[in-house]
Design a protein around this nucleic acid. Sequence first.
DNA 1: CGTCGAAGTTACTCACGCGTAATGCTACCC
DNA 2: GGGTAGCATTACGCGTGAGTAACTTCGACG
Lengths: 218, 218
Amino acid sequence: MSEDDQRPPERARRLPRAVRERQILDAAVQVFSRHGYHAASMDEISDVAGVSKPMIYTYLGSKEDLFGACIRREATRLLEAIQAGVQPDLPPDMQLWHGLRSFYRFVAEYRESWTVLHRQALTVGGAFAAEVTDMRVRAIQLVAALVVSAGTRKGVGEQAEFSGEGLSAALVGAAESLADWALDHPDISDGVLASWLMNLVWLGFNDLIEGAVWKPSE
Amino acid sequence: MSEDDQRPPERARRLPRAVRERQILDAAVQVFSRHGYHAASMDEISDVAGVSKPMIYTYLGSKEDLFGACIRREATRLLEAIQAGVQPDLPPDMQLWHGLRSFYRFVAEYRESWTVLHRQALTVGGAFAAEVTDMRVRAIQLVAALVVSAGTRKGVGEQAEFSGEGLSAALVGAAESLADWALDHPDISDGVLASWLMNLVWLGFNDLIEGAVWKPSE
DNA sequence: CGTCGAAGTTACTCACGCGTAATGCTACCC
DNA sequence: GGGTAGCATTACGCGTGAGTAACTTCGACG
């Protein structure tokens, strides 16, 4: 009936542990991103992974463990993707711009990863929420450092700490929100998204209305 | 044994339906905001409400119905709070500022309402997510209208539609993110929060670094 | 060619939590 | 004071889904 029957010697071969773990994690991310932690069932995950349920338990542990493994893997991927795109010797605004581009490229390519990290991870009370929140805080502090650095470069100095943390939280939120928006508008490129955000937060509406435009300077 | 026994004629009086419904909704918002939709149990809600479970079912219907009722009540509260603070004949930036202040005042006062609306509502797939998303889209469009209005006032006209929707999505996200941040910093007043955001999105980092400050003009 | 171990499965237990049937209690009205 | 209507509870049915025990199959290595 199914196409699998056409190649009897190759049907569902015995695979090494590492490969199965990868398959399981992929399936888990997919299912968690669709239904959220609680509504996702281990049966469905095992089904999507093409593996029976006990395999998941022997390889990855409990449902909570599995979710944790997903979160950690995807968070690492995201951070690596962003760091890969950043160049520390550029001026602050250019660093921010490159970071944003990498971020939007990642979200577009791994939308399920992003969904799990952003939406679902917070709904599981306890350790995971803390873990993800922590990552977010690190991102915020990184941005804050950029902004303050931009300030000191121009000689603002002490007063530049005006509200750095709060502002950075707002900026990160803006970036995340725009990422969600972009999920429904796949035709917008990462460069355009990053530019919009730079125009908004670097120049502000006021300058924008006056006709000013921020452009990458490199 | 318990203190309740000390006053036999007043123990747990019979209350009219409207009052019980209010109590149940209050309890439901509290529990949903703490655990999320799936992890919240009807038993705990009935416990917190001080009412037995069948009352919830006879008055408010199923768990999903109950959640819907919560969402609708809190969303209405939020929108009314914001509209109460807005004055349509002011210039766009002042309108935005007043809207933001009302918003932050609401979040501070009804943090559980905000949590349910912002975090939990999206995790229940289907009708509620759509409903909340819809409210959010209305907010975004409102902001977009403000920005475009600011643009046309200054004569930018057609070109002002540059990326209005995306920018507004980012701005709303920034406001929400700052609201979350403010939950951990209760000492910051709504006026300060709103001012930070105005400085960020109206002036931008660049002006901020130069020492420019946005202030309410009224 | 036998056997040891890792890969893999079927079929179950058990607890939790939604929803309800059956029933009681009290206030109010005629 | 007797009946009716709505407030309220206890105790249970029942499905779903996490986690596991017991068993099977395949490949590798001497």
